[in-house]
């Protein structure tokens, strides 16, 4: 189908001429079609125009997207224990990402404890416990309907007492427009801050790659309430290329740190701006 073609196919990359108005229009459309959004698209077009000589358009566009992200940023794991808080709207892949991340860290020789800070959704605790088992991580649970801040407290305390390297706290999905739930999240954060100075060391916002422009608002408001330090972009194994991450990086300066590429325990990768940019452009 037409809608499935790569950006470069849509814009006819080979035949691109700087003076060709229509070609620029097609380029804009292609970026919009990739969920990059109106403003970040305008910026990319501006940067391309500023180049004068473009050469291979696909290549040039990928370079500009990559430059917009800046160099790859990895998780900061220097503190001991390092506390990682995982947040986001409903169903994006938070709990799965906690499981996969625990596995990755275990592979790198770190001891990990995960805390089930989602006390709301049915069977959220059971789901995380299965992941903890798979990854060989300690698990701290909570009664359904319990206080998520109390779970975060218990998890951080247990992680410290047992000398674990990393504590990862899962949270319930919530829409960024729900102010009471965002306040709850801020409280979880404050409790963690109160236990260990400088914690949480990372707060990851999990964004589904199929998300459209709403992703920007998610990043903005979760940033305000929870102090997000990076994005984990999930479900990149589908045909969506996660273009909203470009908008998030451009408008909020928030880096992507991890990408999810499947439902299996090994399907988590560090974010590679070059690879991401090329995939976005060439499909």
């Amino acid at each position: 189908a037409k809608s499935r073609r790569a950006l470069t196919a849509e814009i006819g990359a080979g035949t691109f001429s700087v003076g060709d108005e229509e070609a620029w229009e097609r380029l804009e459309e292609a970026l919009i079609h990739g969920d990059v959004g109106v403003r970040a698209t305008a910026e990319l077009v501006r940067r391309l125009e500023a180049r004068g000589e473009i050469g291979d358009l696909g290549e040039a566009l990928a370079e500009e997207i990559e430059a917009l992200f800046g160099p790859a940023v990895t998780l900061d794991l220097s503190a001991s224990p390092t506390v990682i808080l995982v947040v986001g709207v409903n169903g994006t892949g938070k709990t799965t990402t906690v499981g996969k991340l625990a596995q990755k860290l275990r592979e790198h020789g770190r001891t990990v404890l995960v805390g089930a800070g989602d006390t709301f959704r049915a069977a959220a605790e059971e789901q995380l416990e299965i992941w903890a088992e798979r990854a060989g991580a300690d698990f701290v649970g909570a009664p359904a309907g319990g206080d998520p801040a109390a779970v975060a407290f218990d998890a951080v305390e247990a992680g410290r007492a047992r000398g674990r390297d990393v504590v990862i706290v899962d949270t319930a999905g919530r829409l960024h427009t729900q102010s009471n739930l965002m306040e709850e999240l801020a409280k979880v954060r404050r409790v963690i801050e109160g236990r260990i100075a400088g914690a949480p060391h990372e707060t990851l916002l999990v964004v589904d790659a199929t998300t459209g422009q709403n992703g920007l608002q998610q990043a903005r408001l979760f940033g305000e309430s929870a102090g997000v330090t990076g994005v984990a972009l999930t479900k990149l194994d589908g045909s969506a290329k996660g273009g909203v991450a470009v908008a998030i990086a451009y408008e909020l300066g928030l880096p992507v740190k991890l990408v999810g590429v499947g439902e299996g325990i090994d399907d988590l990768r560090p974010f590679d701006p070059r690879e991401f940019a090329r995939a976005l452009v060439s499909g």
Binding site: I32, D35, T211, G212, Q213, G243, V244
Partner: peptide, 14 residues
Amino acid sequence: LDAMTGQEAVNVAE
């Protein structure tokens, strides 16, 4: 279908 879905909705639906 998630209301937050972006341009991809068309591919999914098709």
